[in-house]
Write a protein that binds this DNA or RNA. Sequence first.
DNA 1: TAGTGGTCTAGACCACGCG
DNA 2: GCGTGGTCTAGACCACTAT
Lengths: 243, 243
Amino acid sequence: MLHPHLPSDERLPAYLRLRDALAARIAAGEWGPDAVLPSENALARDHHLSVGTVRKAVQHLVDEGLLERRQGSGTYLRKPAFDATLFRFFQMQTPGEDGQSIPKSQLIARVRVTPPAPVAAILGTADTIRIDRLRSLSGRPILAEEIYVPASRFPGLETIAAHDLGPLLYPVYYDRFGIFVARAIDDVSFATADAGTAALLGITEGDPVAEIERTAFTIDGTAIEWRIARGNARNFRYRSRIG
Amino acid sequence: MLHPHLPSDERLPAYLRLRDALAARIAAGEWGPDAVLPSENALARDHHLSVGTVRKAVQHLVDEGLLERRQGSGTYLRKPAFDATLFRFFQMQTPGEDGQSIPKSQLIARVRVTPPAPVAAILGTADTIRIDRLRSLSGRPILAEEIYVPASRFPGLETIAAHDLGPLLYPVYYDRFGIFVARAIDDVSFATADAGTAALLGITEGDPVAEIERTAFTIDGTAIEWRIARGNARNFRYRSRIG
DNA sequence: TAGTGGTCTAGACCACGCG
DNA sequence: GCGTGGTCTAGACCACTAT
């Protein structure tokens, strides 16, 4: 539901109420990955709506990136490799590399921590799991990541076998915890490396680094992850599409 | 039209053909800014379509950012302050400023030039107009811009009275040349200031600068502008929404 | 009050996929 | 061949804007 504290079915149009109802069932995990949803005819029958109205509700969820239609086959959950967007943007200027490949990920630490106050404010809790990773391409470290998620929404994440955490984290959120990252905001800025970051990235303390701070949100607008990624500013490139 | 070299009306669905027809009339300047388009009923009658089909065509153009619906009033051209996005992102960390205001613009030079080869390749021509501007907020320079557009598409741009060029360029493209910027790609990276940039920005040669390279596109995918903006890296912040 | 866009219906036929 | 989503119709009523 988009407004968990509101009844959602005030006097909204039928297609919005159906969209919310479907989003809630999706969020509840009623259909696993690659499951086919009820057909539009079935939804129309069950909700006493015309097919046109059902199509409008489904189209909303498609536009929001939750669902995927396959003509002749059915409507499915979409499981995007969302994490890859960070690296579709973060194109390291390696000659001969196109920057589209996903970097390897090396797990450095996972701990239950009280995060910095601003992060606690964003996530709405001081009980978080922190994940530190080093990501590298062609054997060279390019990005040091520091990730915070609310412990209550990710029970056991800090003890999942490391090999179950692939280079992409958002599919893990989805598959193991039913949490779908729908949106994110990135803030790119410039800083200098502290000793720890410098050691990880193989540069010198005080060298310029680029910082990407990302807040990720679920479909209902809850902040579900905050992370900061640091890379050598000298071969940094962040790409963004507008409009 | 989306595919100017194709007849566009092959055997496409009716709503797509109507969308293309409307886009062509918009591009031809049939309705000026703030003009009201024919009502959905009128379009349905004229094109021998049902209102539902017309609505789908119009909705496409709304989604693409060309049109804007106002219930009870009509459908209008949208004239977005698109240029402002650069500065919605480029939030200088000035205490007490929210970073949302649009910087003043000081025109430095306008010349007909052969651009650097990569820019010529992107724009598809070596005959361009280059515009240099310095943008400042609260009297302090924050961004030096270097802008290239194809001369053939902007006849007379280099001689337009300077006071007709406001802080926002994209509305000028639209109002004077009928060119609508629909999309852009930004590439953010870091470099060091050369003497000219340093002088403009009031920093020292060799200081770190952030560089935003932007390629802007029309609705049919033609690159219509390339620009590079440079600012002091130390109080730089670029914000991007994903998903 | 007249006209606009917003929602919704109850059908129809088509294009596609899959067994 | 059957069921799916994709397109389209010809209406209806509602909510809103402008006069």
